[in-house]
Design a protein around this nucleic acid. Sequence first.
RNA 1: GCGGGCGUGGCGUAAUGGUAGCCGCAACGGACUUAAAAUCCGUUUUUCGAAAGGAAGUGCCGGUUCGAGUCCGGCCGCCCGCACCA
Length: 895
Amino acid sequence: MGHSFALSQACEGFQGLVREELNSICLKDIGVAAERYNHRETEPKWQSYWTENHSFEAKEDYSKPKYYVLEMFPYPSGRIHMGHVRNYTMGDVIARFRRACGFNVLHPMGWDAFGMPAENAAIERGIHPKTWTYENIATMRRQLKSMGLAIDWSREFATCDPTYYRHEQAMFIDFIEAGLVERRVSMVNWDPVDQTVLANEQVIDGKGWRSGAVVEKRELAQWFLKITDYAEDLLKALDGLTTWPEKVRLMQKNWIGRSEGMTFTFELEDANGQKLEDGLTVYTTRHDTIFGASFCAVSADHPLSQRLSKTNLALETFRKEVAALGTSEENIERAEKKGCPLGVFARHPFRKDVKLPVYAANFVLMGYGEGALFGCPAHDQRDIDFANKYSLPILPVVAPRGTDAAIFKITTEPYLEKDGDEAVLINSDFLDGMSVPEAKEEIAARFEATGIGKRTVNYRLRDWGVSRQRYWGCPIPVVHCADCGIVPVPKSELPVQLPEDVKFDKPGNPLAHHPTWKHVACPNCNQPATRETDTFDTFIDSSWYFARFTSPHDENPVNAEAAKYWLPVDQYIGGVEHAILHLLYSRFYARAMHKTGHMNADEPFASLFTQGMVIHETFKTASGEWVLPSDAIHKDGAWIHANTGEPLVVGGVEKMSKSKRNVVDPDTIIASYGADTARWFMLSDTPPERDIEWTEAGAEGSWKFTQKIWRIVNEIAEFPNADATMGADGLALRRVTHRSIAAITDDLNNLRFNRSIARIYELSNAMASALQIQNKSTDLIGALHEAANFLIIAMAPMMPHLAEECWSVIGHSTTAVNTSWPQTIGALVNVDEVTIAIQVNGKRRDEILVAKGGDRDILEARVLSMESIKRLIGGKTVKKIIIVPDRIVNIVVAE
RNA sequence: GCGGGCGUGGCGUAAUGGUAGCCGCAACGGACUUAAAAUCCGUUUUUCGAAAGGAAGUGCCGGUUCGAGUCCGGCCGCCCGCACCA
């Protein structure tokens, strides 16, 4: 530990120097084996070679199977971080591996370039969002290129390019025509200081995250995409996404939140028993518990509540109180369950003598079901809390079979049936004795027969509100006209381009403040009208970029031929944090684009892989200030600050973040160790779906390995090339080589990068051992050359620069990138002798080396004649012998 | 609360129900060196034993099986997602 930290400190300022020193020292001692591998020369050299030769530019080529690999494109925040390095390395390995295997690979890159950080930079530092964004893109493009990624840069675009967002606008107009868009008034979180809508995540303790102002609920006309029209399809199609992580599918399933229940209508009457004209329609999944109902509750925003509040001061006050809380679910969660009687009563559908008081309640959501429910306190936690607060009756109507209804009482904890309870209905008239499903069926049949209600399917999923009162986003291409209403901008006039002369000197949307931009003639009647000043949610930009990559320069949003060839994305890779929103929106967008003729597929991503985070150790001072891990040194069993000597507290190993000061800059790492080392580290040891811990020692280890490969290859290159034969001297190495390649191929096909790397280590160890043999025969030299050739191509997806350099050293005039994946020979992959474990009563006692696929009887006889086994069996009876071919012999003896 | 995942050496991890710990890191010993670094060779789950060779061992308890890290049931711990959804 101490050593690695001393080194890491040295590296902070003088990484280059340290490395150069090591190089020169080693050069001196190594003598024969050429120079040390110098990534500073070779990495830029090969990157230029790939660029100049357009090595990774994809063309539609129907003679080859296509493979489209995509990593979630980055937001140009400033600089790439280690998470990017991990993500793009994985994608790159897949791209290069598939390419070597004969696929026509599409591996593009772009920028998710609209969004609030650019506006924040404008507000805080006076930089124009466009300038800020494109400068960041330039920096990050340079950084990504220094990683040596096999990307088709000719397809690059940023979502803030008008050449991209004009198509987004055109498709939105198509969506309007196809009935996929709605303009609707809805409740939003409104920041009165910043004059903008806030997402729920931006409301902290009821206050705006930036302004600190108390957030209000406000009704605002917003654009919605009707994703709920596809709720059922989006849910059902999850079953077909078999190569998505189960976890993500489940998260989407829960998010869509399908529930089967009933809507039905109560008759209402006032306090005097006068029947009201309208009834109260509720949604329930527990219609079986109707006899346990003791109240009804509606949302504060329910039409009935709104209407009655006009003549009910207490109700009006209550509604304001609820509104002040905001729509944040976190706030609702924290709030106590409260209600306000409406002064009206719902008549029980089966018990004419029972009248249920109707409340407005703060826990009822207007957006779900009918915004109204009936409460059955005995079987619902929320309802029982409410009932106890307002002294409402609690009547149990479901109980485990065999319970005496007269004794079964519920007070503060609801009874929820558990598996094995065989719950039945009690206190429920004609339902008594039925199971819950039977009772549900009975009620549904009766309600439907009388027309009081019907079976209904409900979804938790809401329509997607896409309006944002922001400047740095795609303008929504519509015009508001006093006479014609909402008029889409004609496609010929697209793009509706963002004005560049905007000011961020006051709160609110700069587009709305712009003196001229929004004033236009109505496309319909030519009278003065105004543009929509809202822009799109940036999730729209990222919902179809994968399709644009198939034809990034086309005059249409997507070229039909290209899309048909390339889509869907064969392998998509990104963080699990996008498991719901981005991936669900993209799945919806594919369907919407299909409906409007822009795409042929419904599912955008055939396979999904979610990679883990990059984590790093953290340190704090006693006063709680975060300290750079490189400033922490371990001395006499305690951690202290390298400069101040202050004692340090060891924090957790956590996600790299600027605030915890535990970030490692990829630029520094690439400059010091090289891109190949960084890539290798990111793939080693830890399975890709798990969090990987960055350690200096690990990076050092990866770097040493690059040098080891370089040494081995150079040493082999010293021997004149010879063909691999089946000669005895080379056979052992050849077996390792072919078996390793077979395993690596299998692992890479299944994204098991860490395993494939372990196999590469094994192969290199075998090669190093073979090199130790004195007086090498031609057979062995042939085997060594073959091993080197195979190793270079197999490691090329992970360490492409080193692979190219080794490929020339070993004597090729071709390039590794244009070399096919090694073909293994079955006879060398398959073993002919196996070590079989011998168990007695399931315990391993000995082993035996036999020919593979040998005769069972002969094996059995041989095992039984072994001294060690005879001794163990002794005089006991052999009950049976289990033989698993080529694996195990288990002798079961009587005890 | 609901749903899901994970617990294996000092550490990261590996193991189609079939020899637990491949590979790497770290540590220790040795070779080379004036010395250090680098490199190479070796040791490293625990325990008994001089050794040969035993015994135990994959969070805990139980089950299925000839055989369980793996499958089933129940605990404990950690992580993640959703959460007043009627």
